[in-house]
């Protein structure tokens, strides 16, 4: 099966500094792939390159067999930015209505997606008055509203309580069951266990493309945070 996201020899320079150097990876269709690594390792930049909003110095980035950023992909790729990018002076519903109109989402999708992120009770509230976690979910809802087949989510579960986090991971797997492909970044290895596939990233490079079970087996560590450390030390040696 061909990869949903395919990257070859990607180089990205931001502010005169090489942020991503010679990075290649594949993301398999219909799976939740976790992009894990410490803050500042280039996860967001990599995601921006996949969505096609990042100026790229060299390399090839393909999504669904098309060059990243191609106009036709704008209907198929959903992007959640790391900091919530919603209009804080509009209500949750008004934000969703706008993004639904822009993406040509079908009527009724607004209510569906509100339920999906469990924000029905806050639907009429202005986003600026919401808590951080609610804002993240409002932003996520605007990303999901047109049901894109590829979802690039930059730290969607940061700042959420454990119950909500579990609910969201549940809904991510429901999305892949329905045929979507998800790339989800996190700096917390606790989240790794929730993913089907793992991409471990450090200092602008992919250290390892693996699965949670494979990672545990290879490193002999049951705890995935320790397993990540073992991989980092192994790469350094």
């Amino acid at each position: 099966m061909t990869a949903t996201i395919h990257i070859e020899h990607l180089h990205v320079v931001r502010g005169g500094r090489t942020v991503i150097e010679d990075l290649s990876l594949d993301v398999s269709p219909g799976r939740v792939t976790g992009l894990l690594g410490p803050s500042g390792c280039g996860k967001s930049t990599l995601m921006r390159a996949i969505v096609g909003v990042q100026v790229v110095a060299a390399g090839r980035v393909e999504v669904l067999g098309r060059a990243a950023g191609e106009p036709s992909l704008r209907h198929d790729v959903g992007y959640l930015t790391q900091s919530p990018s919603v209009y804080t002076d509009l209500t949750v519903t008004e934000n969703l209505q706008y993004f639904a109109a822009v993406t040509g989402a079908p009527p009724g999708s607004v209510d569906e997606v509100l339920a999906q992120v469990a924000l029905q009770d806050a639907a009429g509230q202005v986003v600026g008055s919401l808590s951080g976690g609610q804002r993240t979910r409002a932003s996520l809802a605007t990303t999901l509203v047109n049901r894109p087949t590829v979802l690039v989510l930059d730290e969607p579960t940061v700042g959420l309580d454990p119950i909500l986090r579990a609910d969201l991971w549940q809904s991510f797997h429901e999305l892949t069951d329905a045929g979507a492909t998800l790339l989800v970044s996190s700096h917390s290895m606790e989240e790794a266990a929730e993913c089907d596939d793992l991409l471990l990233m450090r200092e602008g490079a992919i250290l390892s493309a693996t699965t949670p079970d494979e990672l545990r087996e290879r490193t002999g560590e049951h705890d995935l945070s320790r397993a990540f450390l073992a991989v980092v030390r192994g790469a350094g040696a």
Binding site: V51, R74, Y79, S83, P84, S85, V86, V102, T103
Partner: peptide, 13 residues
């Protein structure tokens, strides 16, 4: 600065 422009630029508008 709020990131909404970046979002919009990744959408079919």
């Amino acid at each position: 600065t709020s990131g909404t422009l970046e979002r919009l630029m990744s959408l079919p508008i």
